[in-house]
Structure formats: structure tokens, C-alpha cells
Design a protein around this nucleic acid. Structure first.
Lengths: 347, 347
DNA sequence: CTGAAAGCGCTTACAG
DNA sequence: CTGAAAGCGCTTACAG
């Protein structure tokens, strides 16, 4: 072994009295090498604490066995704040990668900037996972570019018709419908919808479409005045949105916020305006963040299965990398009943 | 440019009518190349969508401009659950890396297993950031091994005397002392401490030492019966620990839980036993997780500055990689007063 | 300021 | 089953 620095396959070859090619074969478990020499080489490798140089190996094989996760979030005053929803997805993605033997590179991107998405071009990663909301119309053109550059990627988000690349998302429409039906079943008739419904945010729009579908199915006319815009999923925005609605003199006996964070803000606005939730007004959200159950008023919400989502995301990306045909997939959404809707008696 | 596949520096050289060496120099911004040719080459590179192959470049330069983050957590039934404290650190670390031009590889490790920490040996990363609690005594020997293998690493955790490698941690002792003083100042005299104080968990022990110091300074004797073990930072464990204490017939007018999650569990145990917090019993935690402020009883706690922590971690690691002398550092801790301690009147 | 050449450490046809 | 050799795409002394 060379006096200092890492051992190379040549060092092992020397020790074992074989050629370097044989070492490389033995270490990759090739059955071409006799069991005896294979074992001998493996023992020496272990003793020398040899590790294959990934740069050399990847350069030669032309793939990196690494995936890159791009998290989009525009900067907040507090740097460290990440949307808790993506955070739980991150955990699942990391584990799924590990299970498949892939490493995971992670990078924060700002929607406003040009994406720094050259991981595949620079051979640092074999594919991209895109996470984070933002204006879909803006993102779309970049997605299109990625497709043209032949970049392997999957994104988390609404599955919309004719979209560039493939997406994994939750069934926002069914989820929105199910939770609205729940509210309707509770006898609520004036349910506010907090969330933008424009094209920039297809997931919110689908949730609203579910809201409308539930109303129609129940033979109740949707009152457009009950919908308020809210684009960013933050407590502040939710607070503001519902406060605006109430100021307009709109009466309300239910609130369906397009995300949990919006719901928490809306609940606060309600309280400030003198309404008691859930007695006077039922409140529900969407996402099922960890804090939804910890909130002072445990939140009834629609759960997105982040564990499954992460697994499916890496599975789809890997299929794509292997050259298989892949389609977008929609994951089920599930209503979680807690106290904020008033369905359960207070303890 | 070759008909298919990525462009290489040779393709650019051909287009520009210069040698490949010149292309390489120009693209790395070497002042050896005349401004004219440099500009010309950069234009062609852009047009060809050329990206330096990181594998080749790293192989040649022998460093990867990548850091690896090892997150330790033993598996939970729900795969996707990560301790929220580390999650907020993760955000900060990612951004700090990006600012320094480093990529970040992330990997989950289980304490029980052998660490898969060969990122540096395999040249995938230049250094390691270790995050996560677990039995310090077990971790110590692995840390020692890393030092012997000459691996660059920093870990988040208690800064303890004669420890292998370097650590960045919060000043647990001062934090524990400050919050105990706050409780004492509120007139509390029988303050339970929820958290293990053995060597396996130096951070909890330091917080307890702060608890003791505050008592001594106030001339109050510490009652060892007020301390209950709790190793894992979960709501369940905190609940159980305090319930045990109360069952033993110990009277209590305050609870200092060694973490926020423990505090939330303890609060529940208190309520179940018929005690009202904060009126009868003041409760405080440690960490300042996002959910501490969202909890039904907003938690008074000791804040660890995760943003700063992440920045210091990567800074120290980078210094080490550059070969500079580095020492462990202790970050300040800050008491955040909310409602659970009873210092503020209820609204 | 520029080019020809060596070499980073592997993997893998090719030949035996 | 094994070895000699080419080559992945760069960076960087070396020579001019």
C-alpha cells in the first residue's frame, strides 16, 4: 500500500498478487473471478479500508447513483423556515433513496431565480425530484425546458392535463370533495373557501373544484362570494384572507382552508371577530401537518400520505432513469376528523 | 459538437478553434487566457449548454466540493417522522452550504447499525456533518474511529471535555440555569426535571446541571426525587415519565422538561392527573420547536438558534477541510417566555 | 497567453 | 478465470 493517502485498486492488486482488473471485478462481485481470489481480495480491501472512488467509478460508468432533490421556496425572513409539509416528505424521500442504494443531493431553489438544475448535466445526479409550490404558470416553462433537455425528473404537485414531464400528486379533487361533504353532513351551509383558485395554483383549484362538486351533489348552489384568495400557505395569509371576507359582511358557518397553515390563521381571524370554532363555525384544513394535531384546536383536515408520496416519487424517477415508460400518478387523500369541525363533542 | 449526448470541453475547443486546455482554463476564469478568447469560449459553452463534468473534475482535483449530512435516528413506526429540531437545522445547513458553493448529500443513519460514513473515503464528500442524538457512549467510539481515519467532521451536540473531534452545541448549562431561575423567580419551589442525566445524554445532563446551579444560587436544596429519567425526546416518553413521578406521590409546582416534546407530553400527564397548567404547575421545555408556540398551551422554553447553528457547523467543517485549526464552539441559549410558565396573565 | 501531454482511479471490451 | 490496454472528461505542470 502506498505510504499515505487512500488505498487504490492498484494497492490491493499488488498485495493480492493479481492484476488491477481482477481487483475491480472481484470487488464488484463479478462471478468471473474465482471464489478464492474474490475472497482474498475482499479481505485485503477491508483491511486496507479501501473504498471505491466514486468519482472515478461514475466517470467511467457515466451515471452517479445519486438523485437530486430541489426544494423550492422563496426566502423568508427566518432562513430556516421550511414548509413542514415538504419536510415530512423529505424524510420519506431520503429513506426511499437509501433503500434503493441511491444517494440524495439536496438543494434549495428560489422560484424567483433561474433554477440551478444542472445536476444531471454535470453528472452529479441521474435525476431530479422537484418539490415546492409557487406559481405553476411560471414553473411550467422551466419544466418544458427540462423535458427538452431530456432531463429525468418528477415533481410533486397537481396532476394536470398536458403537463410537461411527470408528476406525483394527491387527489386534491376527491379530498376537497370528501371534506366538504363532511362539513355539509354536519349541517353547514355557508362554507368559506380560503385559497386561490387561479391557474397559478392547480392544487388549490382542484380542492375548490371538489368543494363545488360536493355542493352540487347535495343540490346546494355555490356562492362565489364565499371564496377568498390566498396564495402562500402561511398563517398570516390565512388570517388576513378570512378577516377580509368577514369584513365584507359575508356570513359563514364553515371554513375550508386549502391548507392547514391557512386554516390555523383563519381560526385566529374567526376568534378575533368573535366567532367560536367549532361551535359557531366549523374549520377544516388540508395536508395534515404534524401541528394540525397539536394545535390548540386539533384540526380536521385531509391527510396527504407523505410517506407513500416520497416512495412513489423516487420509484417513478428511477423507472424513468431506467428508460421505462412512466405516467403521472395520483395518490389518495383521506379525511381525518378531529375537533375543529365540531363533529366530535368537546371533551 | 458531437451528434448526441452532452458536449465536452473538446467540442467547445473544436468550435472555438483553440485547444481543450484553453477551454478548461477559460471556463474556470483563469486570467491566463486573454479576455477575448475567454468570452468567445464562454459564449460557445453557453450555447452548447455545456456543464463541467463533476466526476471528471473531482477525480482530477481530488476533492468534491460536497458535504455530507448524516442524520441519526432510529426507525419509528412512521417512517417519515424526523425530530422537528433537526429539520429546522437542516434548512439552515442546506442554505449555508449553498452560500459557500458546496453541495449537500444527505443520509439517514440508524444508531444501532454501523455507520455508513464512507462518503469521504469514496470521495463523494469532503467532510461530514453529524446530527442526531442517541447514546453518546456508543457514538463516542465511532467518533474516535473517524478521528483516526482522519475524516473531517463536525457534530451537533454537547461540547464535552476531551471529546473526539469537534462539536458545535448550545450552552445547555446556561440555558438550563436561566430557565430554572425564571421558574424560581415565579415562586416555584418543587420543580420536576424530566430527562435522563446519565452519560449517554450529555446535553440533558448539562441542562440538569444548570437546574442545580440555579437552585444552589438561590439557596434552595435540590431534591433528587424530583428528577425522572427520559431518554428519547418524544411526547409519549414525557407523558410516561411525569405520570410515574406523580404516581410516586411526589408533589410538584413546576416542570422543567429537557425538551419541548417531553414538555408537551408532561403537560398532558399533568392534566390527566388533575393539575392545571400554568395555574397550579408551571411547565417549561427546551429547544423552541415550531410547535412550542402552536401548542394548546404555548410553551415557555429555551431557544436554540438553529439558523446560527447550521451556519457555524458548515463554517467549522470548511475550516477543518482547509486545514485550519478548529475548536468546538458553544452557542448561546435564550429563554422564550410564553404562557405555560404562568408568567403572563392569561388573555 | 497557448498547446501537447500526463494522469486522477476506475470499468470493461478484447484477447487469451 | 485472468491480464494488458483503452478511455471516461477533466486539470495542471511543463514547455514554448
Amino acid at each position: 500500500m502506498s505510504s499515505k493517502g487512500k488505498a487504490t485498486s492498484f494497492d490491493i492488486a499488488y498485495e493480492a498478487g493479481v492484476s488491477q482488473s481482477t481487483v475491480s471485478r472481484a470487488l464488484s462481485g463479478s462471478s468471473l473471478v474465482s471464489l478464492d481470489t474474490r475472497r482474498k481480495i475482499q479481505a485485503i480491501a477491508k483491511q486496507l479500508n479501501y473504498k471505491v472512488d466514486k468519482n472515478a467509478s461514475c466517470l467511467r460508468r457515466q451515471h452517479s447513483v445519486t438523485l437530486a432533490l430541489l426544494l423550492f421556496e422563496d426566502p423568508t425572513p427566518d432562513d430556516s423556515l421550511i414548509n413542514p409539509f415538504f419536510l415530512s416528505m423529505l424524510g420519506s424521500i431520503t429513506r426511499a433513496c437509501a433503500r434503493q442504494g441511491y444517494d440524495l443531493l439536496i438543494s434549495f431553489q428560489q422560484f424567483s431565480n433561474d433554477w440551478h438544475a444542472d445536476y444531471q448535466d454535470s453528472h452529479k445526479a441521474d435525476g431530479l425530484i422537484l418539490l415546492g409550490y409557487g406559481d405553476y404558470l411560471v414553473a411550467r416553462s422551466t419544466l418544458q425546458k427540462l423535458v427538452e433537455q431530456n432531463t429525468h425528473f418528477v415533481r410533486w404537485g397537481a396532476v394536470v392535463e398536458g403537463q410537461p414531464g411527470i408528476s406525483v400528486g394527491c387527489d386534491n379533487l376527491s379530498g376537497g370533495r370528501a371534506i366538504t361533504e363532511h362539513l355539509l353532513g354536519l349541517g353547514r351551509r355557508r362554507i368559506a373557501f380560503v385559497g386561490s383558485i387561479g391557474e397559478q395554483c392547480p392544487e388549490f383549484r382542484d380542492r375548490y373544484l371538489g368543494y363545488c362538486a360536493a355542493h352540487e351533489a347535495a343540490g346546494i348552489k355555490v356562492d362565489p362570494a364565499l371564496q377568498v384568495d390566498a396564495l402562500d400557505s402561511t398563517e398570516q395569509v390565512g388570517h388576513q384572507a378570512l378577516a377580509n371576507l368577514l369584513e365584507r359582511g359575508i356570513t359563514v358557518d364553515g371554513v375550508f382552508a386549502a391548507s392547514d397553515l391557512l386554516a390555523i390563521g383563519a381560526t385566529n381571524a374567526l376568534r378575533e371577530a368573535g366567532f367560536e370554532a367549532p361551535q359557531q363555525v366549523s374549520v377544516v384544513g388540508f395536508d395534515d401537518l404534524p401541528m394540525a394535531s397539536y394545535a390548540s384546536l386539533p384540526l380536521t383536515t385531509v391527510q396527504q400520505d407523505t410517506k407513500l408520496a416520497g416512495e412513489v416519487l423516487v420509484e417513478k424517477l428511477l423507472q424513468q432513469i431506467r428508460g421505462e415508460a412512466v405516467e403521472s400518478v395520483m395518490l389518495p387523500a383521506k379525511v381525518i376528523v378531529r375537533r375543529s369541525c365540531g363533529a366530535r363533542a368537546l371533551p
